[in-house]
Design a protein around this nucleic acid. Structure first.
Lengths: 137, 137
DNA sequence: ACTTGACTTGGAGTGTGCTCCAGGCTTTAG
DNA sequence: CTAAAGCCTGGAGCACACTCCAAGTCAAGT
C-alpha cells in the first residue's frame, strides 16, 4: 500500500502551476492555511498532486473573496475529523460565503448595468446634433 | 436665474444618505475625487443634491472595484471640458472597467459554481449510507 | 575551487483605502 | 456660564494580504 508515487513539484513549479506566487505559498503555509509541506533532504518543499489540489481550493476561496480569517476557520474544521458536526460547520461557512458571493455578483451586475448606461449616455452625447467636434490637437 | 434652492445636507446626513462614512467623504474631497464642497459661515460642508449625485457615482465606481487611481483619472477628465477628446477618454476608461468587471463577474460565477459543488459533495457525504452520526456534544 | 541558482528562514516593508485622533471652533440647550 | 454636539484640520494609525529582503545552505556545472 504505497503512497501515490506521482511527481512532486518544487515551490516554483507549484507556484506556476497554480498561478500564485511562491511567496504566497510559503505565507499560506506559515499561517497554517496549508499543512506543512513535505521536504527533501535539503529542507526544500516538495509539493505533491494532492497538495496542489488543496492549494487550488484555497485559491478558489480567496479569489471568490473569502477573507483569510474565515479560510482559517474552515481549514481548522477540515482538521478536526469528519464528524457530522464539523461537516455541518464547514457547510455553514461555505453556504454563508455563497450567500455573500451571490449578493456581490448581483451588486456587481447592477453596477455594470449602470456603467453601461453611462457609456451609452456619453455616446449619445458625442452624437448630439449641432455639436462642434473638438480641436484635434 | 437662481441656483437650485433645494435642501443641503450636513456631512453626517450626506454620509447616511449615501451609505458611506463621513470620514470617507472628507477623504474623497481631500484627494480630489470630490470637488470642494461649499461651506456655511462656520466652514462646515453643505452638500447639495448634485453633490450627492456625484458621490453616488463615485461610490458606484468604487463598489464595482475601480481603483482610486483610475477614478482620479476619470475625475480629472470630467474637469477638462466636454470635448470629444475627453468624452472619448472617459468612455475608454469606463469601457475598460466594464471589461474587467465582466471578467470578474464571470470568474465569481465560476467560483460560486465550484463552491456549490463542494457543498453538494458535503451533503452527499453526510447522507452516505452506513455512516455513524457524530456524538451530538 | 568557485560560481550560479534555486531554495531556506524570520522579519521588515508595501500598497490600498480608509479610519481614527487630538486639539480647536461654533452653535444650541439647560 | 457651562456643557454637549457637531463639525473642522492635519496627520498618524490600521487592516489586509501579501511581497520583499538579507543572510544562509546546498548541489550542480565549468
Amino acid at each position: 500500500m504505497d503512497q501515490n508515487q506521482s511527481r512532486t513539484y518544487t515551490i516554483q513549479e507549484a507556484a506556476e502551476e497554480m498561478q500564485i506566487s511562491a511567496d504566497t505559498l510559503r505565507y499560506y503555509e506559515k499561517i497554517g492555511l496549508l499543512h506543512p509541506i513535505p521536504r527533501d533532504q535539503n529542507g526544500r518543499r516538495m509539493y505533491g498532486e494532492p497538495d496542489l489540489g488543496w492549494i487550488y481550493w484555497l485559491k478558489l476561496l480567496r479569489d471568490s473573496g473569502m477573507p483569510i480569517r474565515t479560510m482559517k476557520d474552515y481549514v481548522n474544521l477540515t482538521r478536526s475529523g469528519d464528524d457530522d458536526d464539523t461537516i455541518q460547520a464547514r457547510c455553514a461557512i461555505l453556504e454563508e460565503h455563497r450567500n455573500q458571493l451571490r449578493g456581490k455578483i448581483a451588486h456587481l451586475k447592477d453596477c455594470l448595468d449602470k456603467i453601461t448606461k453611462k457609456v451609452e449616455f456619453y455616446q449619445g452625447y458625442r452624437m448630439r446634433p449641432g455639436r462642434r467636434a473638438s480641436k484635434k490637437r
